[in-house]
């Protein structure tokens, strides 16, 4: 449809390059565009979680004791172990990007499967954590019939803490589940041979996304789990 321009160097060959979309001039422009786009997407993700962290901060300021009482209901050991699991998944993700850069199709798939493995461990642990909260009457979902009945409800703000606990970790887990879907897509993409040393933005952007999810947890862990570690128990701690 469009004849190549003589005016712009490098324009001529790009229709022969199967990795280059029609509207880009060269591979570098394409790759930088993809990276920029992904970072802009992460900026919006950042603001999305930021809104929730903002609300968290305000309420923690209102209810320091309630926040502490709520935090003491969480299992710090499990939280810390899960943090390490997620960090490992970030490492394997970085290794997947490295494999893509070096053009190792096998390496990409291996590392992504490892990442998914660590991610699943994290989610399974999360499931058991949620279940424990359910058993202890720490679910604040009144319209679902899950009333907040634990003794900590006597402490002002403790119930709100759990609203935020479930809201924030839930949103984080949802991002991981979406990530799993994207992983499957990346694997298919890789199997089709579309990931090469010249063009691997898909794997790179997947990595950026996964690392972002990791960063969210890096903040959630101290802000949710570590509040009441050094004080005496406020009320009714189970662990």
């Amino acid at each position: 449809m469009v004849s190549s321009s003589a005016a712009v160097a490098g324009h001529d060959d790009h229709h022969h390059n199967p990795h280059l979309a029609h509207h880009f001039e060269d591979l570098q422009q394409q790759r930088e565009s993809h990276a920029l786009g992904m970072w802009l997407f992460l900026a919006q993700e950042f603001m999305f979680f930021g809104g929730m962290f903002g609300a968290y901060t305000i309420y923690r300021y209102f209810y320091p004791v309630g926040w502490m009482a709520g935090s003491q209901q969480l299992n710090v050991t499990i939280g810390a172990a899960n943090t390490v699991v997620l960090l490992c998944s970030s490492f394997t993700m970085a290794m997947a990007v490295r494999a893509a850069q070096l053009g190792s199709k096998k390496g990409v798939i291996q590392q992504i499967l490892l990442t998914m493995f660590f991610g699943s461990v994290f989610l399974v642990v999360k499931y058991f954590e949620y279940y424990e909260k359910f058993e202890h009457g720490l679910m604040p979902f009144s319209t679902l019939g899950l009333e907040f009945t634990n003794v900590v409800k006597e402490v002002p703000g403790a119930q709100l803490f759990f609203s935020f606990y479930f809201g924030m970790t839930g949103m984080h887990a949802l991002h991981m589940v979406i990530g799993f879907g994207l992983f499957v897509w990346v694997i298919i993409h890789t199997l089709q041979g579309k990931v090469t040393p010249e063009k691997h933005s898909v794997v790179e952007n997947m990595g950026l996304y996964w690392h972002f999810v990791d960063i969210v947890w890096i903040f959630l862990f101290p802000l949710l789990y570590l509040l009441g570690l050094n004080g005496e128990p406020v009320i009714g701690v189970h662990h």
């Binding site: 300021y61 209810y63 004791v65 402490v155 004080g231 128990p233």
Partner: peptide
């Protein structure tokens, strides 16, 4: 209630 209160009013 802030700052510091979180640490010292925990003796409920």
């Amino acid at each position: 209630t802030w700052p510091g209160a979180a640490h010292r009013t925990t003796m409920i």
